[in-house]
Design a protein around this nucleic acid. Structure first.
Lengths: 211, 211
DNA sequence: TGATAATGACCGACCAGTCAGTCATATGTA
DNA sequence: TACATATGACTGACTGGTCGGTCATTATCA
């Protein structure tokens, strides 16, 4: 008979532990296939305890995907506020930030969850649009407008469809979580190539600049 | 007491009816939330009958998403075989084909299913990679190589990452099924703009060509 | 009148959510 | 300090309901 040790924790900490466990479970098995008991076990507590902190499974999920709202956008906001930073540099920073902080960490599974379960959870989709997508597009619009003014875009029309800039991020998420076992995608090259497609080559910026 | 009319059908036809019903159900509620009884009801038959045609729910789902493998790739194959068709025209045909045959039909829900449930069904992901993605990339590689040879790409590096060409298709699927209620995306403009970003403007093709 | 297809009541595994009871700790009392 | 009592976080067996899958029965067909 295993002796179960009870342990009281600071509610905030316990909450965080449950969210961590839930993240791991949802990320690796999806919403439907994850049992509340799995989450509890992973957090090292009993099932009932989970319900002391979250009203039900849906709430746990919604809170989870909403709560991990990345601090990336914050960094982007600062970056774009600085007029001396070129749009190309800002976008390239966004891409490498995305690669380092999302694509190459467990957070990529979170984004996958939003893609996969979003339609089932309008609250989640709405939240992500409002907090992440909408804000990101706002930053991009500023950047792209500035880029157009300086003639840095190969196709100025991009400024009217800033979603395009997000396309490689989406592609990389889907590819790495769906097709990577069958065919490797070099995401570094993907982002670099895309950047070179969006922006005119450095040498062409000062007119007459020979490459 | 309602008198239920039994009906015998050609097995092929019945199979198709079940698949249609399953498509509708899975598309609107996802795999987990769809009950076999829903599928049966939608097909106008009893639950047990479904099991006369498919061994279990997984098989039904797998068969469904595999079976609707689009004839689009076939059309693309023919198009690219014709040397006189310019790469830009071929890609633009692909985009409009995709818009007309997938994005603006119920088939878009099928693609969304693959994205959402793919990781849970390796067989599905593997199938889609092998039958759709892999073939599509093959066609694209040929097209892009030809485009590079004729100096039609703004960034020849694209030829090494043909996945990029698929990015707007992915973006449009995800956007329309996830964020469309909150913010409209003009997919026509999205694809047009992307095309203009990939390929050099028509006037620049013949060197010295004035715009 | 078999042979075949279809039915839907039924089974049992599974699981979200509940709640009566437990016990480590904090507080009050002598 | 030593003991009694109160608190509430924690537990896990249990419930009620759901749903994938089965199969004895019934209807239809050749």
């Amino acid at each position: 008979m295993v002796e179960k040790r009870r342990e009281k924790r600071d509610p905030q900490q316990r909450r965080a532990e449950i969210l961590n466990a839930a993240f791991a479970c949802f990320a690796e098995r999806g919403f439907a296939a994850t049992r509340m008991e799995d989450v509890a076990a992973r957090a090292g507590i009993a099932k009932g305890t989970v319900y002391l902190h979250f009203p039900d499974k849906d709430a746990l999920f919604t809170e989870l995907v909403s709560g991990v709202a990345s601090p990336i956008l914050g960094q982007m906001g600062e970056l774009v506020a600085n007029e001396s930073v070129t749009p190309r540099f800002a976008v390239s920073m966004f891409y490498s930030l995305f690669r380092r902080e999302v694509l190459e960490t467990d957070r990529r599974h979170l984004l996958r969850l939003v893609l996969a379960e979003g339609p089932m959870f309008p609250a989640v989709a709405e939240f992500y649009h409002r907090e992440i997508i909408s804000r990101g597009l706002g930053v991009l619009r500023i950047l792209l407008a500035r880029a157009v003014a300086h003639g840095e875009l190969r196709n100025p029309g991009i400024a009217e469809t800033p979603q395009i800039v997000m396309a490689p991020a989406l592609l990389s998420i889907v590819w790495t979580t769906l097709f990577e076992p069958y065919e490797h995608l070099d995401t570094q090259k993907l982002f670099d190539t895309f950047l070179d497609t969006l922006f005119v080559p450095a040498g062409d910026l000062l007119e007459g600049g020979a490459q």
